[in-house]
């Protein structure tokens, strides 16, 4: 942990700020949310890493999908993700968002969340313990440090692809496209 490294703070304040101030939006889609209260309260205390829950997606930069994603909740996940300010990081919590988990053959569960929104990291397990959340956070730090937690840029670059996938499963979406035109792959490189 390099939170007290003043040199790094002076060199790249933005990156360091994003690392040590992760305001988390917990999306309580399923049973996974049961592991969140212990991790933010006395026993494990996520706040010592700067991770605190916030009320609206506008204030958040960490999106935690805790549990299986049904077709109905996918719409709200997409909406919330699009409303978050950039840079934003998504973490799938538990095995259900990864591949459907125990709902692998359910007709209305999303098996591949990363087809619809970009996901920066996964926490495997059913359930993952709170310690796993902290491991995920420290991994996320590393990714941010190396500039690899760039899901939001991928979303911008391949918006057409994501939007098509979303509309394929949800039908016509009520809200207009977030980015008006598909940014070329080369442009994406310069943004990143």
């Amino acid at each position: 942990m390099d939170r007290n490294n003043l040199g790094k703070w002076l060199k790249s304040p933005g990156k360091m700020g994003q690392k040590y101030s992760l305001h988390a939006l917990y999306f309580c889609t399923g049973c996974g949310i049961i592991e969140i209260p212990p991790s933010i309260t006395t026993r494990w205390d996520a706040e010592r890493f700067g991770v605190i829950p916030v009320a609206t997606p506008r204030q958040a930069n960490l999106f935690l999908i805790t549990g299986y994603v049904s077709v109905k909740t996918l719409r709200y996940i997409i909406r919330s993700y699009e409303q978050m300010p950039e840079p934003k990081f998504t973490v799938g919590f538990g095995s259900c968002p990864i591949n459907g988990g125990m709902y692998w053959d359910s007709y209305n569960t999303i098996k591949h969340l990363d087809k619809y929104i970009p996901v920066d990291g996964w926490i495997a397990g059913c359930m993952p313990r709170p310690e796993a959340v902290f491991v995920a956070v420290t991994h996320l730090w590393t990714l941010i440090d190396k500039g690899m937690a760039d899901g939001y840029n991928k979303y911008r670059a391949n918006y057409q692809y994501y939007r098509e996938n979303q509309e394929k499963i949800l039908g016509k979406l009520e809200w207009p496209p977030l980015f008006s035109k598909n940014i070329k792959h080369e442009e994406y490189r310069t943004i990143a």
Partner: peptide
């Protein structure tokens, strides 16, 4: 005004 926070819904 239609891009507001509404708990994920439109």
């Amino acid at each position: 005004q239609y891009d507001n926070y509404a708990a994920g819904t439109t």
